[in-house]
């Protein structure tokens, strides 16, 4: 049984007649980095929103660890699958950068000292320590992106979905993100990476799914990536 199964899923937005996704059939294990690529508007973001239960499939079923995703609450999904939105503005809601990173761990019941340690680590890794008391909405786009990724990673979920995480990052920050994602993959966690950035995808992904007009037109594995670079 795969960690995340998408079984004959179609999706149409309410009050629209043209389906955005048609008969999608995919399985994801809790290992390796899978990239989802495809032209603008082909339904990549919609597909990821279905995977985390923010949208519900019009037809077909999505299962997480074998159970239909409709049986989970959003919080239960969130604790298993970390999701980084395409638009970081939509997922930052705390008063300071440090609070934002600590929000998940603090609410998952970690001791204050453990939360502080994690916050310190992720702020340091994503080079946000200088902004720890800044209001998140005052950051630049790239900084917000890094903060959103740090805040989700601080929860240490089993599986990660990142929607266009490299937009707004410079080459050096991309490299850092790449290293970190590979490190997560090596620690036995799975990941889906939605991206336009073909160079980035080439460097990190072991499996590439190509979406076009709401259908999967290619699903191929590339040997010798990411995990073996340890």
């Amino acid at each position: 049984m795969a960690f995340l199964e998408i079984d004959q899923v179609s999706f149409t937005y309410p009050k629209h007649d043209k389906p955005v996704l048609t008969e999608i059939d995919l399985q994801f294990d809790r290992a390796g980095i899978t990239a989802v690529v495809g032209p603008n508007g082909c339904g990549k973001t919609t597909l990821t929103k279905l995977m985390i239960g923010v949208l519900q499939a019009t037809e077909g079923e999505i299962r997480l660890t074998g159970r239909p995703i409709a049986d989970f609450s959003l919080a239960e999904i969130g604790r298993r699958v970390g999701y980084v939105f395409q638009n970081p503005d939509l997922q930052l809601f705390c008063g300071t950068v440090a609070e934002e990173v600590g929000f998940g761990p603090a609410n998952l019941g970690y001791e204050p000292a453990a939360v502080a340690e994690r916050v310190g680590f992720y702020l340091d890794y994503f080079e946000l320590t200088a902004y720890r008391n800044t209001f998140p909405m005052h950051l630049s786009h790239g900084e917000k992106q890094r903060l959103a990724i740090a805040a989700v990673l601080a929860n240490e979920p089993d599986f990660l979905i990142l929607d266009e995480p490299t937009t707004g990052l410079d080459a050096y920050r991309k490299r850092l993100l790449e290293d970190y994602l590979k490190k997560i993959a090596r620690s036995g966690r799975g990941m889906i990476l939605v991206s336009h950035d073909t160079a980035f995808v080439d460097r990190v992904a072991e499996r590439v799914i190509v979406l076009e007009n709401g259908r999967v037109i290619e699903d191929s594995r590339r040997k010798g990536k990411a995990a073996d670079e340890a």
């Binding site: 919080a75 969130g78 997922q91 809601f93 929000f103 998940g104 609410n107 989700v152 929860n155």
Partner: peptide, 16 residues
């Protein structure tokens, strides 16, 4: 609506 969704996706069960 966005914030309520984002908070829950960080693992907080608002209902509980």
């Amino acid at each position: 609506v966005n914030v309520v969704t984002a908070v829950q996706l960080r693992g907080v069960d608002l209902k509980k």
